[in-house]
């Protein structure tokens, strides 16, 4: 809860926190899925259809769902599986396979890096930056944050509050100033202060607005020009509640920036965040973090195995963790 923000939260194991954050997710998806596994006595068309429905209801989308089910069918044939119950492990494996995070996904943490955080309005960019800043600061990194959302009312005040919470510095100008100029200042400050990680907050923008996407391009150019040898990381933030439009978002942000990862937020709700699977499948962009609350600690590194595990685990398994 936000009210507890200032208080020390007990440190918990990664899996525990993940499971906690995903409890709702897991409960709804797992109960849906396990009911299918148990309600059917044999693997037939009806069974697969029901399975499709469940995945679609988790926002995986028609295409990803079809692909997953096809893949499952093949494996069932190959392995001569007869029991619906056995399908469960296979299904988890095939989803996990698609959610693979590359080995160098977090390389930017070890380099002098500039991290751009982009996305449509209200998805959780500023909050995620606050959380990331807190994490890197705790890792002993020199962190700097750039307030390049100069458009939305009070965006700078909001980010300033987060940098206070995280205990890091901020580079900001006034509302209405040129975001590229803010980034210019921030990049040069990062160079002269020997900052390890520069996090840039940007204004929320819908991906179908040409002029706003051009603005993003311009901001990126400033970084390229001013700090050519920095390590570039560009994270797109997607709201876990979003449906199929998240795919369009990821695609079109990908056209103006080299997206290196995705942050999926608000997975502490009842949304199943299945769009993550669809995106990974269609675009091959790895999910790197998930947001599971409004507290500064509520951002997790994405772990496909534990994610799928948490999605499908029964309550008993969750308690064990």
């Amino acid at each position: 809860m936000v009210i507890l923000m200032g208080e020390e939260k007990e440190k918990k194991g990664f899996f525990r926190r993940l499971v906690e954050g995903l409890t709702k997710t897991r409960k709804s998806i797992a109960s849906g899925i396990s009911s299918i596994f148990s309600a059917f006595s044999k693997i037939d068309d009806e069974f697969y259809e029901e399975l499709e429905e469940t995945l679609i209801m988790a926002d995986l989308g028609v295409n990803a769902t079809m692909a997953i089910v096809e893949n499952l069918k093949e494996k069932v044939k190959e392995n001569k599986i007869k029991e619906p119950e056995q399908c469960r492990q296979l299904l988890m494996e095939s989803i996990e396979e698609q959610m693979n995070v590359p080995a160098d996904a977090y390389e930017f943490e070890n380099r002098k890096s500039v991290v751009m955080v982009i996305g449509v309005n209200g998805v959780g960019k500023t909050t995620s930056i606050g959380k990331l800043a807190g994490q890197y600061k705790n890792m002993g990194k020199r962190v700097l944050v750039a307030a390049a959302d100069t458009f939305r009312a009070a965006a700078i005040e909001q980010l300033t509050e987060w940098t206070n919470r995280a205990g890091v510095e901020i580079i900001a100008q006034s509302e209405g100033s040129d975001p590229a100029a803010v980034v210019y200042d921030a990049v040069n400050a990062a160079k002269s202060r020997k900052t390890d990680i520069l996090l840039c907050d940007t204004a929320g923008r819908l991906h179908n607005k040409k002029n706003l996407m051009d603005e993003l391009r311009k901001i990126n150019k400033v970084v390229d020009r001013e700090y050519p040898d920095c390590y570039r990381e560009t994270l797109v933030v997607l709201d876990g509640t979003t449906g199929q439009n998240a795919l369009a978002q990821a695609k079109q942000f990908g056209e103006v920036a080299d997206i290196t990862g995705i942050i999926i937020t608000k997975l502490d709700g009842t949304a199943k965040g299945g769009i993550a699977v669809a995106i990974q499948k269609e675009l091959g962009i790895p999910v790197k973090y998930i947001g599971v609350g409004e507290h500064i600690d509520d951002l997790q590194k994405f772990n496909p195995h534990e994610y799928v595990e948490a999605l499908f685990s029964t309550d008993a398994a969750a308690e064990e963790a």
Binding site: D59, G122, T241, T242, G243, A246, G269, T270, A271
Partner: peptide, 12 residues
Amino acid sequence: VDSMTGQDAVNV
């Protein structure tokens, strides 16, 4: 409600 909301819209 965000018009981009997915399947969870009903629960919400």
